[in-house]
Design a protein around this nucleic acid. Sequence first.
DNA 1: TATAAAACAGACAGGTCTGTCTGCTGATAA
DNA 2: TTATCAGCAGACAGACCTGTCTGTTTTATA
Lengths: 194, 194
Amino acid sequence: MNAKTATNERRSARDRLLDAADELFYSEGIQTVGIDRVIERAGVAKASLYDVFGSKEELVRCYLQRRHELRQIRMRERIALHEHPREKILSLFDAFAEYAANPKFSGCAFARAGAEAKPESSVKAAVDESRAWTRALFTQLALDAGAADPNLLGLQLVSLYDGASMSAYIDRNPQAAIVARTTAAVLVDAAVAR
Amino acid sequence: MNAKTATNERRSARDRLLDAADELFYSEGIQTVGIDRVIERAGVAKASLYDVFGSKEELVRCYLQRRHELRQIRMRERIALHEHPREKILSLFDAFAEYAANPKFSGCAFARAGAEAKPESSVKAAVDESRAWTRALFTQLALDAGAADPNLLGLQLVSLYDGASMSAYIDRNPQAAIVARTTAAVLVDAAVAR
DNA sequence: TATAAAACAGACAGGTCTGTCTGCTGATAA
DNA sequence: TTATCAGCAGACAGACCTGTCTGTTTTATA
């Protein structure tokens, strides 16, 4: 038997720190979770954290970057399942509804981080980058769908996404995501000249 | 001349504390602003703060409560200007667009506080109360407007409001509020059987 | 004017936070 | 075998936070 199986292999301090940061920062917020709790959950020495990341801010930035990359993959996979732009758009809301139904769902990591971050910080920059990517994706899909004003429809869809995310989290109302899907269909149909 | 004119009258410690809390908590967030900065801006002794409010949490709760009351007044005044439910609804989005154009606009105070607050705190309860009131208002207007499904339209309008608020703040995009107004019109018209 | 209430300044306690530092351990590779 | 290097434990510094306490001054009212 191999000494290191896939499941019990001891992963690098970096990976364990990112996993712990993801769980704690996402579920409880960045400001409220201290370094000590992250290293405790990761099972990593404090010195290792500062060797690898140099600061808490950089750890936060990397946590957001990894979330963003996973989100990009998730979204691209979803829209690849469909042929027509309208279906692609709605599939993103379906994916979101599934995601928001998870009991661990705690809203949009980027929206929450953006509300906590200082305007000039690298964390805020990471948030901006992710939001810009999402906005561009929706706008492109709106264009593909033949919307009369793709920029408008793109903004509308992003706002729907944001609003549903907030309601699902703060109001603990997972129905908000399903409502958003319904609303998206209305807006797409209204935006496409018929 | 009166020794105390309306402008230079020294207001109570309570009022000055609430003013300072409003400016600082709203613009910078609750967690990042310490008690010392609040009392410094208010020109009030720390002992006075704890005599009046007893804790930071209670100060935060009162700050949110006052915001909520002002918002209720603002919204009621707005919708009173119009006769038809459709116009009442859209006027709320007009008011929001004006509000979001203010350079000091920093998103929805309740959404931000809700993201920072712990689930069982009195602060979270204040947030929930305000959000429930807003949701009820939109749902009632949806009913008055003759929506086929007033609960659905109410949720849709609240989500629009939330989404626009988030985008206007995080993306520094005041246009989001105007987009929300346009979207609201589409949704109302789609929801009302014709 | 006398008295009570409100507000003042600011030191202090006790806790938490980020980040640094020292010295040790165990695995890998030359 | 020996050198290298990632990672370990945990004490420590220094800043900041909430909340308490003492004693003084101002203000309002009877």
